[in-house]
Amino acid sequence: MSGPNTDFDPVEVTPLKSEEVEAARNAAVAAIEAATDLEQLKAARLEHAGDRSALALANREIGALPPQARKEAGKRIGQARGAVNQALARRQQVLEVEHEERMLVEETVDVTLPTDRLPVGARHPVTTGSELIADIFVAMGWEIAEGPVLEAEWLNFDALNLGPDHPARTMQDTFWADPADHGVVLRTHTSPVQARSMLTRTPPIYIACPGRVFRTDEYDATHSPVFHQVEGLAIDEGITMAHLKGTLDHLVSSLFGAGISTRFRPSYFPFTEPSAEMDMVCFVCRGTGLATGDDGAADAASCRTCRGEGWIELGGCGVVNPRVLTACGIDAERYTGFAFGFGIDRMLMFRHGIEDLRALFEGDVRFTTAFGSEI
């Protein structure tokens, strides 16, 4: 039996040839040096130093060599892989420095700017709407008057010619404070402010009275037990219905745009005589009663805002009843005046296209934010 062959076996695997190993190393180093960012360097690492790279596959072939050739081949492959890893480390360090410098320039944050971590708030539309109406009257030379929401029965009813048997005094229409025989109510309109002003001021009087009022209405899309009114009162010598119409025309044109006119329909209120319901021309269809398309042309369908009528009811008004003047200590023979009252919430619904009155009172910040911070 012959012994083991200790002579050199010239068998050599092609990937382990020195020229092949050197070419793979040079290709890897060149690809690494050519990488311009960390993503490209990662791709070069996977291609030239990963498990499927040429040098990794060559390293696996060492086992196919005779024992006498393994040491030399292993040394050759190890040195090539070491050179590739060193090139990777050097390029990694350079590209990380460049990346950080680029981030400092491109992602600079000015820490002196106001933070946006807290959401931007918004003023409630009832507040801004009330202030806008007040500004319109102040610009005409009027004053803004205010009064308490818990009011004396005499000022809320008797001074305004609402007799003891008037249905508005019943529990079905008015919130009475306990005990009921003390004659204190949550005001049902802002007219008591007018009565207070007539009792404490000397004509001429020109006041607007915005504020909250309370009635025992059901809470639904068009009614609320708490809502907002603005009432106006003008007392002077020679005041007529013509002054009233001119004032209201100016108010609605300021709120809804130029060219919006008003009309009066006969009505009845205890504190004015003669009295009228005031309508304004629909600010959407401009009185045609027809819907308008995107191109501004009239459509055959009815206007949704005025329901095809061409007019929108806004509120009540009239010449101040002489009995009210006398009850408040004003000479009805010398002075005349006019008064009116409109719902602020109703005007806001028209002005902003709000379909449900409850949206004004439910406190949803998403609703209020849509109106911004109008001043």
Rank of each mutant, 00 (worst) to 15 (best):
Q93H: 10
E96W: 00
V97R: 00
H99V: 02
E100S: 02
E100H: 01
E101L: 08
R102I: 04
L104W: 04
E107N: 12
V109G: 07
V109C: 09
D110E: 13
T112W: 08
P114S: 07
T115Q: 13
T115I: 10
D116C: 05
D116S: 12
D116M: 15
L118I: 15
P119H: 09
G121M: 04
R123A: 08
P125K: 03
V126A: 06
T128I: 10
T128V: 11
L132E: 12
A134R: 11
D135Q: 14
V138C: 01
G141P: 06
W142T: 07
I144Y: 02
I144C: 04
P148Y: 07
L150H: 01
L150P: 01
E151L: 11
E151H: 05
E151Q: 09
E151C: 08
A152E: 12
E153S: 14
A159E: 10
L160V: 09
N161H: 15
N161Y: 12
H166D: 15
H166W: 13
H166F: 14
H166I: 15
A168L: 08
R169P: 14
R169V: 13
Q172V: 09
T174R: 00
F175N: 03
F175K: 01
A180Y: 12
A180E: 10
D181P: 06
H182I: 03
H182A: 11
V184P: 02
V184D: 02
R187W: 11
R187T: 14
H189N: 11
V193F: 03
V193E: 02
V193N: 04
Q194T: 03
S197E: 12
M198P: 04
M198H: 01
R201W: 03
G211C: 11
R212W: 12
V213P: 08
F214H: 06
D217S: 12
Y219C: 08
Y219A: 10
D220A: 04
T222S: 11
H223K: 04
P225W: 09
V226I: 13
H228M: 10
V230I: 15
V230E: 05
G232N: 07
A234I: 05
A234H: 09
D236I: 01
D236S: 02
E237Y: 00
E237I: 09
